[in-house]
Amino acid sequence: MNAFHLTEDQQDCLQELINVAMGQASDQLARYLDTFVYLKVPSIESISTSSLTQTLDDKESAVAIVSQGFFGYEGIRGEALLVYQDEDSGRIADLLGYEPDELSHDEQLIDISSILTTTFLNVFASQIDNQMSYNAPKLLPSAQNSLSEHLQQMTFSWDFALKVNINYQVTDYSFNCNMILLIPETAIMNIKKVIDRILEDF
């Protein structure tokens, strides 16, 4: 236990905020994509850098990872990683409503990633009276272990991070991906302040 861990109340509150955001996001996505989007109940955990690298190394079969930074008021910031397996991404152009020859496979991955990340985080931000801005999404180089390599190069230096893992599924298009939100140390303290304020209002 350290200052970066969430108390049980804080954890419950964050879980609730995320659940509500997921519901709204999945509704918006379903209307835009014109198909049912299934989001699995997320896992939230405080993790150390080393254990994160380990968890993510297990996802060896990941063929593509798209990274997108986000930042809002009150020092809420972090990075979203969208992790794809090989078999998950065959029909993204179709899902997005494009002809396959209108955009490359890389662009399809980047596009759907950005849509999933920004839709969810926009709704989440409005839950906490905030507003998010985003970096342009980047496809990480597809070398093996690129994820842990990428994490080692990440600009914010941190030992602890808050990790939120949400799984997206669109069964009609055999689409599946994992969204991993990583919120570094200083931002955890800021998010704890926001959660405490919400808890006080109850």
């Binding site: 918006q28 996505l29 980047i110 950005s114 849509i115 926009n122 342009a136």
Partner: peptide
Amino acid sequence: RKLSGVLQLNTPSFSSWEQ
């Protein structure tokens, strides 16, 4: 299609020189 997504989802969208 790209811009209709921006309006409907109220989210930003990007296009990079790399793609």
